[in-house]
């Protein structure tokens, strides 16, 4: 899976959790909580959704690693190849 495919998955799961966010309006460096206004329950839902979609579990302490789309793609790509 390449980075662009991972990015599409991340954005589509963000949209499912928070349908008020249009993936086309999201910048890679938008902070999920500060810029996109996801709350902590949304983050938990996103983590669960990414686990279901990609089989990757993200421990609580590593949530800051996915706090922007760009960081999430890097983190998930690392887990997929690693």
């Amino acid at each position: 899976m390449n980075d662009s495919e991972i990015r599409d998955i991340v954005l589509s799961e963000i949209h499912k959790v928070a349908p008020d966010i249009d993936p086309a309006d999201v910048s890679d460096d938008d902070h999920l909580q500060d810029d996109l206004e996801l709350d902590s329950m949304d983050i938990l839902s996103l983590v669960t959704a990414l686990h279901e979609r990609l089989g990757i579990s993200i421990p609580e302490a590593e949530y800051p690693e996915i706090d922007t789309p760009a960081k999430a793609v890097r983190y998930l790509a690392g887990k997929i190849t690693g």
């Binding site: 949209h15 499912k16 928070a18 349908p19 008020d20 966010i21 206004e37 996801l38 709350d39 329950m41 949304d42 839902s45």
Partner: peptide, 19 residues
């Protein structure tokens, strides 16, 4: 479903809108 939930989140904010 997403369209309705999206509107609710825009109006109410994430803390109040249905999950």
């Amino acid at each position: 479903e997403r369209d309705i939930r999206g509107l609710a989140r825009k109006r109410l904010g994430a803390a109040v809108a249905p999950r």
